[in-house]
Structures are given as C-alpha cells and as structure tokens.
Design a protein around this nucleic acid. Structure first.
Lengths: 139, 139
DNA sequence: TGAAACTGTATCAATTATGATTACAGTAAG
DNA sequence: CTTACTGTAATCATAATTGATACAGTTTCA
C-alpha cells in the first residue's frame, strides 16, 4: 500500500475540520506535508468518487461533498487504494510441473483478495467524523 | 508489505507437500522463483520462530518443524512481516499548530495497528494445510 | 477583456524500497 | 580434508514512490 489512502483520509478530515469545509491544494499540501500537485491528483480521484466537489478558477479549491459521520474509511480505501494489499511480486511459476509452484499464485491471490475484504470490513467501522473525534482527544 | 510473507508461506507449504518435509535453499528457490540467498534469509527467520529446523553441512537444508494443520498464516505473518501494513511515509507534522496536522500521525498509527490485528484474525483461520488443500483442488 | 488564482494532468527527477547477486565464514557428512 | 550445505553481510540493479515543474483550462473580478 502506498500513502494515497492516508493522504485522502487526512484531506477529508481536514476539510471536515475547517468551518467552511473548503481548502485549496496549497493549503491541503501544507497541512499534509506534501506537494500541491500530489494533492490535486488524489483530490481529483476523490472528486470522481463524489467525496468532494472542486471549484476551478480564482477562489477555487476543494469542498467536502459527503457527511463525515456517514463516510467510512472503507469507502475511501476502496476508491483510492483497492487491490494494493497484495504485493506486486509473486512466488511460483504456472509453467512448472510442481503442483505447489504452479498453483500457489492463484491460491495466494484469493487469500489476499479475501484479506482485503476483511480489511475493508474493519475500515467500514471508522468514519471521517470518528477520526476527527480521536484527533480532538489527543493531548 | 513486501513479499517475504508470501515466500514464507510458499516455502512452508512446499515443505509440507514434500514426502520427507525437507529441502535445500536451492530447491526452495527454484520452486518459489527467487535466489537461494533470499530463501536462506527468510528461512533463518522461520527457524528463529520455530517453524522449521535447519541442518547445516552436506545433505543439509530445511525441515518442517510444525504441524501444517495447526500452523496459521497469522503466526507466519506475525513472525515475518509484522508492522508492514502501515505505509512508511506519514502525513502531517507534530510541530504544526493545526490540530489535524499535528495529531493525525498518532491516530492513523492506531488505525493501522488495529487493522493489522484484524488482518491477523483473518489469517488465523487459514492453515498451511488448508492452503495445500486449496492448491490440490486447482485444475 | 484580460490578469490573477485556481484545478487537471502529464512528465521527469530524486529518493527509497525491493529483490538479485556475490562473497565468504562456519558446519557437518563421508 | 574435501564437498555440500547454511548464515549473513555487502553491493548492485530495478521498481515503486514521492517531489517538482510545466502548462493548458477555468473562473473571478477589476
């Protein structure tokens, strides 16, 4: 998994935190600690899945378009990082005569797929609002 | 997550599959499709956690030292890849005045930690033997 | 209308993570 | 005492990730 999921969650939490629920890529980048272009790329994907609306032009930026109490990290993970639990490198080789070597890829694929579903089930219990609440409880 | 978990599972499944439950790093490397030195590194770690025994010297190699029906992928994950669910790159900055930026790391750390526990709970339901059974069912 | 302040997106560079390779010391069998 | 193995570290190559730059397109507002 790369950090796009974390950045997406951070950005949505930050938007939910701001009184007007709106920020430019530059503001978000400073808060997240990354480059504005990277934020724009990820926010574009969040816009395509409907979590934010964007406004181009002067005084533009990103606006929260979902209810923090209804939006779960599972939805965000699915939109931004689905399929990234499984490592890209595989063991075994379908061409080999050995039963284990030739079939392990299929079996491990299934295991990682199911594991990701479990992961999403857990993330489905966490909302943007609950993350914000946890943040507010920090010392 | 890198592929060490997958390689560890593959190696143990392969040992369980072999009639004498024993193989050298070279045999394992060929089956897994990687370099013998990489196998040795991972098998060393599996030896330290008791899943295999190693025999040095001529006619040496790795021998299964656990019951395939009792050994779960959770145990293997924990031994080999614990803590690798969380991306290494973090958002936010504890030095910033903003509540969100300064505390998101702590909160996301907790979420990834719990997510990993969930993942392990799922992997706890899968044994080396059940993986081998799935492999044998492949066409 | 046109300058200013934004997003959208592509491309390339820099950094980091991953995997492959080599090397060699240590060990046990025969 | 040679041969065939593991243990481990170091180094190289490649791939993935992140940073940076550039520029077209859009909207606001003087």
């Amino acid at each position: 998994m790369n950090s796009e999921f974390t950045i997406a969650v951070h950005s949505l939490v930050y938007l939910a935190y701001l009184p007007d629920h709106m920020a430019s890529s530059e503001m978000l980048a400073e808060n997240v600690c990354t480059h504005p272009a990277r934020i724009r790329k990820i926010m574009s994907s969040l816009r395509r899945s409907g979590f934010v609306k964007t406004k181009e032009g002067i005084r533009g930026g990103y606006m929260l378009n979902c209810r923090p109490e209804d939006t779960t990290l599972a939805q965000i993970y699915h939109a931004v990082s689905y399929g990234t639990l499984k490592p890209s490198w595989c063991t075994g080789n379908p061409e080999q005569p050995c039963l284990v070597s030739s079939n392990i890829q299929t079996v491990m694929d299934g295991i990682f797929h199911d594991a990701e579903m479990y992961l999403e089930a857990y993330l489905g219990n966490i909302t943007i609002e609950s993350v914000l609440k946890k943040i507010k409880k920090c010392p």
